[in-house]
């Protein structure tokens, strides 16, 4: 299974970014082959529609699950409709989050937990996870 983690960087040891649509990067981890791919999120600085763009981006990269903290109604609708499961990230590295997921240590996010544009408003700051 490929898992997409919203991140501040492109590597396995990069720190998780709590925002889904506005995260600067996603790290895609293949849990079977253990391969890691970092992709830039061009929607991070978009005026609107960042969440939808991010959902499209990670779906095109083949992700079946997402680890992130905060996502709005558009991103949520896009991921849910596509059958992509969303898990609530804690604080830490991409690597730690994926390991936690595999151990069953992450809880699924069952509904959008941020307002439209919430990630944009907090850009550059340390946002609350929930």
């Amino acid at each position: 299974m490929k898992v997409a983690v919203s991140s501040r960087g492109t590597e396995r040891m990069s720190v998780v970014d709590p925002r889904f649509g506005r995260a600067p990067y996603f790290v895609i981890v293949d849990t079977e082959s253990d391969e890691v791919e970092g992709i830039e999120n061009p929607g991070a600085l978009a005026g609107t529609g960042a969440g939808v763009a991010a959902a499209q981006l990670i779906a095109d990269a083949g992700a079946e699950a997402v680890i992130t903290s905060a996502l709005g109604p558009h991103a949520w609708a896009a991921l849910k409709s596509g059958g992509i499961q969303v898990y609530d990230a804690g604080r830490g590295t991409v690597d730690a989050m994926v390991k936690l997921l595999l151990q069953g240590g992450l809880t699924p996010i069952e509904e959008p937990n941020a307002d439209l544009k919430a990630g944009a408003a907090r850009f550059g700051q340390s946002p609350d996870a929930k």
């Binding site: 929607g43 529609g49 779906a59 558009h74 409709s81």
Partner: peptide
Amino acid sequence: SAIAVIRQA
């Protein structure tokens, strides 16, 4: 980003 194709959706 007003239209998205997420897998079959």
